[in-house]
């Protein structure tokens, strides 16, 4: 199943990088939600996530002809996304320095699904708070590897390609992050119940 999806993606990438617009559209459709969510996990703002997702796909379309290994498309796309998010924070910190940023820390507040259910709302708020506390407490690479692995569902090899690090380094970061995760009771307990 996963292999056939990889095969399908590889074929689409091959056509798209030779200018096939229909294949490009299909690639955008396939990865749109994944990329939107990965940006959202890192920006905590739906609006920023929407804008950045659009920019990431623009960048993808522009750079696609230069992609050499079609099998590495997913990690290549995530790399574009991470770089774009890094630029976003760089720009934001400059604006903050000059006091011209209109930043509002939305802290994962604007969610649409089941927004009327107060228990759901409370649980969601609690979850994101615990998630934020845990991930922000991790060193940069541990945090990035942990989120890529368990929130973005990338494999070790894909993470290594995305971050341009070797697999053993990725595993070491992941091991350290998981060790801290095991020692963090808040998020740990919350996850026992799973999705309500």
């Amino acid at each position: 199943m996963a292999d056939s999806k990889y095969q399908q993606v590889s074929e689409l990438v091959d056509k798209a990088r030779h200018g096939n617009r229909n294949s490009t559209d299909q690639l955008v459709m396939l990865f749109h939600e994944d990329i939107f969510r990965m940006v959202y996990y890192r920006t905590r703002s739906r609006m920023d996530a929407e804008d950045l997702t659009q920019e990431i796909f623009m960048q993808m379309i522009k750079s696609l002809p230069g992609l050499k290994k079609t099998s590495r498309f997913k990690s290549w796309l995530f790399r574009i996304a991470l770089n774009r998010i890094k630029d976003f924070y760089r720009k934001k910190s400059i604006l903050n320095f000059f006091g011209t940023s209109t930043e509002v820390d939305e802290s994962y507040q604007e969610i649409s699904q089941n927004d009327d259910d107060p228990i759901d709302k409370l649980m969601r708020k609690e979850f994101w708070e615990q998630f934020r506390q845990f991930t922000e407490g991790l060193p940069r690479w541990e945090r990035e590897v942990f989120i890529l692995r368990f929130a973005d569902h990338l494999g070790i090899r894909e993470i290594a390609e995305t971050l341009k690090k070797n697999e053993s380094t990725v595993k070491t970061h992941l091991y350290r992050a998981l060790k801290k995760f095991r020692q963090t009771p808040g998020l740990h307990d919350l996850l026992k119940g799973g999705v309500p």
Binding site: Y40, Q113, F127, H153, K192
Partner: peptide, 11 residues
């Protein structure tokens, strides 16, 4: 569960 919750609790 962590992966499912991040997905379910995202817009």
């Amino acid at each position: 569960n962590l992966g499912n919750m991040t997905k379910a609790f995202s817009p």
